[in-house]
Amino acid sequence: MTDRQEVLAAIEKALDEVLEREITELTEETRLFDDLRLDSSAILELLLLVEDTTGIAVDPEDLDIDHLRTVRTFADYVEAVLARGEEGS
């Protein structure tokens, strides 16, 4: 997975599953907490689903709340992890 659109599609699919509904107007500016009303357990589920889909391994020490502000910041984080080659075992 190397394309930005693939990363965004993986995030959107994971959000659909977490929220148990299709997100129809998701943009990179969509705020995960404020707009989608995700809570800590929903964020954890989102992280696990994105890990499964993209093959990355999220390091809790590396993850910051700023990475989870918007779809854009989360996609940037996923792309950075992919670029470093930190795939899950």
Results as ranks from 00 to 15, higher is better:
M1F: 14
D3N: 14
R4F: 02
Q5F: 04
E6C: 06
L8I: 14
A9S: 13
I11L: 12
E12R: 15
A14Y: 08
D16I: 03
V18F: 06
E20T: 12
R21V: 07
E22R: 15
I23A: 05
L26D: 09
L26F: 04
E29M: 06
L32S: 02
L32D: 01
L32F: 00
F33L: 14
L38Y: 02
L38N: 04
D39W: 05
L44F: 11
L44T: 15
E45L: 11
L48K: 09
L48R: 13
L48G: 09
V50C: 08
T53H: 13
G55R: 11
G55P: 08
I56K: 09
I56N: 06
A57E: 14
D59Y: 03
P60I: 09
P60C: 06
E61R: 11
E61M: 11
D62T: 13
D64I: 07
H67K: 08
T73P: 08
T73M: 04
F74P: 06
F74E: 04
A75C: 01
D76L: 03
D76F: 01
V78T: 09
V78W: 01
V78M: 03
A80P: 00
V81E: 11
V81Q: 10
L82G: 05
A83G: 11
R84H: 13
R84Q: 15
G85N: 12
E87L: 15
E87I: 11
G88A: 15
